[in-house]
């Protein structure tokens, strides 16, 4: 059975939904969600780790700045460098950036408002451990809810990400024209001012992925806007079984 760890920090909110998404993806008993505690330098033998969303340590100093130094994160960084798949969602993405596992940083939304809505994303890279179940160019609908979601990096880093195909998700807007089917495109600006509409990126190996929107909140039509997010959790199970 594949064991996927889900970390809980003080202030984490979405660990329960992340664990539920793992169980949902492994419905036939193929996967188990393993709770990991911030203060334990122990990954409990898991095969992959999810760093979930929330407000770890109250987002004091900077979002993710203090969580990065939690005992469990030392183990996550060590395991990630050896190839363990790691997914950072929202605050988890911020933590992975602060940890240096992913480049760039997440800043206060350009509009200064907390953004909370269902958001269309375009899958730009379906060759990561977390996105192989999607078609390249697929458009998925998942919740977006954050205050610090504006992805920034210097121009050289952005060019490197683009050149290596490491932008995994981009924000797209849904603007149907009268009498036409909805046609989604990048729009004038991203919902939070993220540079180049970047919603999620990966490391050079494609095993570490971070994104601001919340696939774990979109795993079935009963509780989410779609089940589009489930593919990320199914993807990593595929990757681990194939390994």
């Amino acid at each position: 059975m594949t064991r996927i760890g889900v970390i809980t920090f003080p202030g984490t909110l979405d660990d329960v939904d992340a664990a539920r998404a793992v169980r949902h993806a492994g419905r036939d008993g193929a996967a188990e969600a393993v709770p990991l505690w911030h203060a334990d330098a122990d990954l409990r033998g898991v095969d992959a780790v999810i760093v979930p969303g929330g407000f770890s340590y109250g987002d004091y100093l900077r979002a993710g700045a203090i969580a990065r130094f939690a005992p469990v994160m030392g183990e996550v960084v060590r395991a990630a460098r050896q190839g363990m798949p790691v997914l950072g969602i929202c605050n988890g993405f911020q933590i992975l950036c602060e940890s240096g596992l992913l480049p760039g940083a997440l800043l206060r939304n350009a509009g200064l408002h907390f953004v909370c809505r269902d958001q269309w994303l375009r899958v730009e890279n379906n060759e990561t451990a977390w996105t192989s179940r999607y078609e390249r160019g697929a458009e998925i609908l998942v919740p977006l809810k954050n205050m610090e979601g504006r992805y920034v990096a210097d121009a050289a880093t952005l060019d490197e990400l683009e050149g290596e195909g490491r932008v995994v998700f981009r924000y797209v807007v849904d603007e149907p024209e009268p009498g036409q089917a909805p046609k989604r495109h990048l729009g004038a600006d991203s919902p939070n001012g993220a540079l180049r509409h970047i919603a999620g990126i990966t490391d050079p190996t494609g095993r570490i992925v971070g994104l601001m929107p919340h696939p774990e909140h979109a795993i079935d039509a009963l509780t989410g806007p779609s089940d589009d997010g489930l593919g990320m959790f199914l993807s990593v199970l595929d990757a681990l079984v194939a390994a």
Binding site: L107, R108, N109, A110, G111, L112, R150, V152, G193
Partner: peptide, 14 residues
């Protein structure tokens, strides 16, 4: 301080 090239919406709001 935020780097010069980084958009500072909080400063702009002030």
């Amino acid at each position: 301080m935020p780097k010069q090239e980084i958009l500072d919406p909080q400063g702009q709001a002030v």
